[in-house]
Design a protein around this nucleic acid. Structure first.
Lengths: 241, 241
DNA sequence: TAGGGCATGTGGTCCAACCACATCAACTAC
DNA sequence: GTAGTTGATGTGGTTGGACCACATGCCCTA
């Protein structure tokens, strides 16, 4: 698609020219996270293109989680560079799931693969693990609604993924989660006895954390795989797809 | 009816409205891969928005690999639904590498993880493997230029990833490749003796394929990991990042 | 000095053109 | 009758200009 390399001798659409310019600014370090792009009108004049084309490029970067656009004046305004890879990967995966060219089964399988690897690599003293333990404590609180429990569950698993210290794996895990979030939420309605399921999930969570703390990455990986696959099978993924 | 006004300022920007509409059409099965979106002007009228907003939405979908836009008339023209998850993931990863928030080291590590898993899962009679063998034969041809060799190498590794039959893993592998393609190409210049390296790579390729054919997924995975890590270390990734 | 109100600059949206391109049908020349 | 040309049609691609809502900050007034 957009070649990283020389496009100068190729004809390219105007918004791709803008895109290439911005990407070069990023690569060269002249634009950094937290920095701001020139105003749309100004950038259009600089690159001798229309504001429309600049906007199309910015819209793409926004969808990719590379910039955030804000109206008005002040620190929250303007187009500022951020870095949210999960947003891009998540939207893309969700859209392709919608086209039914990415089976949910493959997404779950990939999630098992990545999360198993993450916990197998996690060091017991990784900074994120303390966070994970705190989340577990929060999930033990009585009187939590299903939605509250699931929200904490998502955060717990993301904390596990972060513990491996690989930003790409963390981003992919987050996007996989996001892409099937609606799907997983619907599955919950299939569960015959939510209280029983929740208590089983919590027991498994503690086992996983214990295995990591005990430096037993292999066991942690197996537990995570069983944990995830068990949930989806109980909720009815298995037979349908 | 409520004025557009209130709607898009309180709920979502207009191009997101278009995006949502299209995503719903996809989920509902009214739009499928190979199908065509209404013409931009027509869609704008349908949704009571400007053509500009429709175009911004289509630009995003195009960047996500969900749609391909073609000018003129005939079968190649118009905006048709495709499914190229690799494009989206690859562009996103590349951009975030440019912001230096995704270390190349993590990308290589993730690639090792995914590709190792893929070959460990690959069945010896997977359809893609015959293709992989043919690519290897092509790479044995004498007189191949470095670039030709590397192009075949990319295809070989992607064929390996496809052999596991997981579309998500295949897409992610392709995108990881794409995101560091420029980087890897530059590394080649660091190699002291290309001919020696190429022959070593080929020997390892054959070993990997043999392990898969022998149903020894575990050995294949180990070989792949060593193959990839060895290349990047020889080319100088290790010390720099 | 404290307050209101306008000047400025941002992104968000829309419109009305025009261009380049590709196909197809009608028309013309042979 | 056939072959070639030519224009009509419809597609996305691009542009400039206009207006809006919003947020800040200065300036002027009470």
């Amino acid at each position: 698609m957009w070649s990283n390399h020389i496009n100068y001798h190729c004809i390219m659409r105007t918004h791709q020219l803008v895109l290439t310019w911005i990407e070069n600014e990023l690569s060269a370090g002249r634009l950094m996270v937290g920095g701001r792009l020139p105003a749309e009108r100004s950038l259009a004049e600089q690159l001798a293109v229309s504001r429309t084309s600049v906007r199309e490029a910015i819209r793409i970067l926004e969808a990719m989680g590379v910039v955030r656009a804000g109206v008005g004046s002040g620190p929250e305004a303007g187009t500022v560079v951020i870095s949210d890879p999960t947003a891009a990967l998540g939207s893309a995966l969700r859209l392709h799931v919608a086209t039914q060219h990415l089976p949910v089964k493959d997404i779950v399988e990939t999630r098992v693969l990545l999360e198993s690897w993450a916990v197998s690599q996690a060091s017991p003293d990784a900074p994120g693990l303390r966070n994970a333990a705190a989340l577990l404590a929060g999930m033990d609180e009585p009187g939590l609604s299903v939605d509250e429990f699931l929200a904490l569950d998502v955060q717990f698993h993301l904390a596990l993924a972060d513990a491996a210290g690989n930003a790409v794996v963390s981003a992919m895990m987050g996007s996989l989660r996001e892409s099937i979030q609606g799907y997983a939420g619907r599955l919950t309605a299939n569960l015959p006895d939510w209280a029983a399921t929740a208590s089983r999930l919590m027991a498994e969570h503690h086992q996983i954390l214990d295995a990591i703390t005990a430096h037993d990455g292999g066991r942690a990986a197996k537990l995570v795989a069983a944990h995830i696959e068990g949930y989806y099978q109980e909720a009815g993924l298995g037979p349908s797809a």
